[in-house]
């Protein structure tokens, strides 16, 4: 079994008065894509934001590469090697694609320049719109930019929040290819409601419901289990 790079132990998170995460525990293993799935409002995005330090964990532990990070600031967590692609993509609309990439580069060394070239090979549309304002990009291109920014540094762990939201099927296939490439050198934790995407790239899954993990296992098992898909993901059973 491969080593665990990220582990959360019973994390609790509040947003205002609302108790959003009620003891979420999950782990992400090296050389694998871990998918957090569940219905709307189950706490998937809040889990990623809590790991990233954007929402404070009131209880529990978040352990990244053996270090507790639950009380660290987002900039500290990012500099430990965790990249985050938020649900709204979080691109800097008034900056050009080039400037978005430059802002994301925490170092300007040869390794980063090499990664930039390979990222542009992966997402060729970014090359075409290199000097254009990021705000004019299409939804799929913005998503590519958001992912490109997250992997431009030496990222050990990449947290991606619902990358397929509102995208056309053809773009989703391109994203699946991209994530399959990224998983060769980074550990990926993916929040996804699109089961096609989740099952195409995921190795392990954790199902969240009402702020708790209710099931987990290998993705191959979930693909076979129509009962669970129907119960927690709202996917109708095949007739």
């Amino acid at each position: 079994m491969s080593e665990t790079i990220l582990k959360t132990e019973a994390i609790h998170t509040f947003i205002g008065q609302h108790h959003i995460l009620q003891g979420v525990s999950f782990e992400a293993r090296a050389d694998a894509v871990t998918v957090l799935i569940g219905r709307n409002g189950a706490g998937k995005s809040s889990t990623l934001k809590t790991v990233m330090g954007l929402l404070p964990a009131s209880e529990g532990k978040i352990i990244f590469k053996g270090k507790e990070i639950q009380s660290r600031k987002p900039y500290d967590i990012a500099r430990l090697g965790i990249g985050f692609v938020p649900e709204n993509m979080g691109i800097f609309a008034d900056l050009t694609v080039e400037e978005n990439m430059q802002v994301a580069m925490l170092r300007e060394d040869a390794a980063t320049a090499e990664r930039l070239e390979s990222v542009l090979e992966m997402f060729t549309a970014l090359r075409d719109f290199w000097r254009a304002k990021a705000g004019i990009l299409s939804g799929g291109q913005k998503q590519m930019l958001a992912i490109a920014r997250a992997i431009i540094n030496d990222t050990a762990l990449l947290l991606i929040d619902e990358p397929t939201k509102g995208l056309a099927p053809i773009i989703i296939n391109a994203l699946i290819d991209a994530i399959n490439q990224i998983k060769q050198h980074s550990v990926v934790v993916l929040v996804e409601q699109n089961f096609y995407m989740a099952s195409s790239v995921g190795d392990y899954f954790f199902i969240l419901d009402d702020g708790k993990v209710v099931h987990s296992g290998a993705m191959a098992e979930l693909v076979q289990d129509e009962e669970m898909q129907s119960k927690y993901l709202g996917i109708s059973k095949s007739v």
Binding site: K73, A78, G90
Partner: peptide
């Protein structure tokens, strides 16, 4: 987008 800039590092 300030929170995003912070999350970048």
């Amino acid at each position: 987008n300030e929170p995003r800039a912070e999350a970048i590092g």
